[in-house]
C-alpha cells in the first residue's frame, strides 16, 4: 500500500426522512440539485477532496435512510465517524424535535471514544421554501438548542438554491479534522477502515 499521507474524514448525515440529506450531499459534492431524488435505502456515500487551511483532505460523506425504524443499522454505518451532521427542515417542527433523538442514537451506536467532545453540526435546511414564510422553527430556537448541546455549530441552508452548503461543509471538515488528528497519530493509514476493533489503541493519548 502507498504510504502517502491521506486524511480521510468520515462524515455521517442524519435526520428525519425528507429533510434533504441526499440533496445537501449532492449539492456539495456534485453541485447539482434534482427534484427527482429517491428515498435513500440503507446507506450510500460520496467523496470529495477539500482544502482545509494548508491540508488536502478527502471527505467521505455518508447519507443514510431517514425512517426511524432503521436505526438498528446505525452500528454498521456510523463506525469510525469523524463528524455527525444533523439535518432538519425549518418548515417542519417534528424534524427539529427529532434532532435530540438522532444525536443520542448516534452517540449510542457509534460510541465515540470522547462523546462529550465529538463534533456535531446542525443544518436547518429548506430555508428557500415559500420565501421563508412557511418556516416554523426560528433561527433563535435552533441556536438555543445547539448551545444547550455543547455549542454545536449551526447553519441555515438551502440545498436547492445552494445557500450556505459549501460554507457548512467546509466547517464540518475543519471540525472533523480537529477530532481526526488525534487518532491519526496512532493509527497507520492503511487500517483506517478495516475494522472497528482495531481502534482500541487510539484511546491512549499520552
Amino acid at each position: 500500500m502507498a504510504t502517502r499521507k491521506r486524511t480521510l474524514l468520515k462524515v455521517i448525515i442524519l435526520g428525519d426522512s425528507g429533510v434533504g440529506k441526499t440533496s445537501l450531499m449532492n449539492q456539495f459534492v456534485n453541485k447539482k440539485f434534482s427534484n427527482q431524488y429517491k428515498a435513500t435505502i440503507g446507506a450510500d456515500f460520496l467523496t470529495k477532496e477539500v482544502q482545509v487551511e494548508d491540508r488536502l483532505v478527502t471527505m467521505q460523506i455518508w447519507d443514510t435512510a431517514g425512517q426511524e425504524r432503521f436505526q438498528s443499522l446505525g452500528v454498521a454505518f456510523y463506525r469510525g465517524a469523524d463528524c455527525c451532521v444533523l439535518v432538519y427542515d425549518v418548515n417542519l417542527l417534528k424534524s427539529f424535535e427529532s434532532l435530540s433523538n438522532w444525536r443520542d442514537e448516534f452517540l449510542v451506536q457509534a460510541s465515540p471514544s470522547d462523546p462529550e467532545n465529538f463534533p456535531f453540526m446542525v443544518l436547518g435546511n429548506k430555508v428557500d421554501i415559500d420565501g421563508g414564510n412557511s418556516r416554523v422553527v426560528s433561527e433563535k430556537r435552533a441556536k438555543t438548542w445547539c448551545a444547550s448541546k455543547g455549542d454545536i455549530p449551526y447553519f441555515e441552508t438551502s440545498a436547492k438554491d445552494d445557500l450556505n452548503v459549501d460554507v457548512a461543509f467546509q466547517c464540518i471538515a475543519k471540525n472533523a479534522l480537529k477530532n481526526e488528528t488525534d487518532e491519526e497519530i496512532y493509527l497507520p493509514d492503511t487500517i483506517d477502515f478495516s475494522s472497528g476493533s482495531t481502534h482500541t489503541s487510539s484511546s491512549c493519548s499520552c
Binding site: 440503507g42 446507506a43 454498521a76 478495516s194 475494522s195
Partner: peptide, 13 residues
C-alpha cells in the same frame, strides 16, 4: 469477513 463485512450490510438495498 476480514474487512469486517461479514454482515453483508452493503447488499442491503
Amino acid at each position: 469477513d476480514e474487512l469486517g463485512g461479514g454482515s453483508f450490510i452493503f447488499a442491503f438495498r
